[in-house]
Amino acid sequence: MLQFVADQVDQLDLALDQLAVRDRNFDRFAMMLIDNVVELTLHRHAREKARENEMWRHDSSPKNDPKVVAAALGQSFEAKVCLARSTSMIPAEVAQSIQYLHAFRNTVYHQGRRHEGILHSLAIFYFQNACSVLEGFKPMWWSTGSRDRISHRAIKYLGSPKLFEHREVMASACTRLRQVGNSLGQTLIADLQADMNNTIERVDEMIDFLTTEAPQTTSRKQAIISAQAWPFAFSDDGKQWARDNHCPTDTVGGYVDWLSANYPWPVRADPVSGWRKRLVSLKAEKDLNAALKKYCDFMRQTEDFRSKIDESASQLDAYIQQQIDIARGK
């Protein structure tokens, strides 16, 4: 067990080195190291809870919900977090933040997303939460062996602890890791606010572009509905909704106009002013966990609409470029 904990401390110290460089590629590496520590520690926690159930299997009821433990021993990160929360290893707000941060790690690793402007502060915040996870890990007993090899990175925080001192040493090590992490600075709320503001302004500009540069004069509301109507009109769901509601026209233009007027669109009015109110709320937030939730909720809830506006603006831009080429005789 000592070897396992020392390895996690080693990785966190290595992550600190990457974060100190303040380069996005090093931030990506740090994010992956930190996420690995969190997932491994949560999985080891699940193994400990399974062992507890086995030791007290003759009791009238198991100490830990067997279904929750079994799920946590699988591949699901969410299930591991659920067990950690239900067994009071970590508080609910930390559990929620870890899931958001794990999702960011996935987009960085699997999709190559850069998250310009927020990745560094996200990684620092994830580091702080990883310290909470490691500190909350309390095995039933500590063990060490002759094959244990404690790295120089881990010794900086753990020293050469005696077996009976492990719990105290771990608490001290996590405190020291946090202190070093805090020395890197914490700009999470400011960075999230800036990124959210840029997102809102970009959508606002695209809606303006759709209203001022389209071949036919249109209002912001019409542009917003149209951006949703055209892709929906030719989807299977759109065609089925039109059949179920007895669309009265067979022409493409009439069909889209009818859908525009009758379908209950998720966004029917200009959302920008409401978004800016949410931005003010984020800017005023003092709690890092709450701020991350507000940011992630906004990005998730608006993602589909923002994607449709972006696609509509891209199509209009392509049409304008085509007309320019035609006028130039190309």
Rank of each mutant, 00 (worst) to 15 (best):
A194L: 11
L122M: 10
A92N: 10
L101V: 13
D250P: 00
A79V: 08
F125K: 03
D244V: 00
N182C: 01
M31A: 13
G274P: 12
A233K: 07
W265V: 12
S143Q: 06
A70K: 04
Y319Q: 15
S146D: 15
C82Y: 05
R167L: 02
M140F: 12
F77K: 07
M170V: 15
C131W: 00
K63F: 00
E39S: 07
E168A: 15
L282S: 10
E48R: 03
P231M: 08
T212W: 00
S143N: 12
G254Y: 01
A313T: 07
A46G: 04
L210C: 07
R178M: 00
D317L: 10
V252A: 03
G274C: 11
P66E: 08
M31K: 02
A227P: 05
D208R: 01
E93F: 00
E39G: 05
D195E: 08
P215W: 05
S312F: 04
A229H: 05
V267P: 03
R147P: 04
Q3G: 14
A233P: 01
F164E: 15
K330A: 01
M1F: 12
L12G: 09
L40W: 06
Q323I: 14
L292H: 08
R105I: 04
G253K: 05
V81C: 01
L2K: 08
R147S: 11
R276P: 10
T218G: 00
D191V: 04
R328G: 03
N245I: 06
L14Y: 04
I200F: 04
N262T: 13
L279H: 03
D297A: 12
L158V: 09
E54D: 07
Q321A: 03
H102C: 09
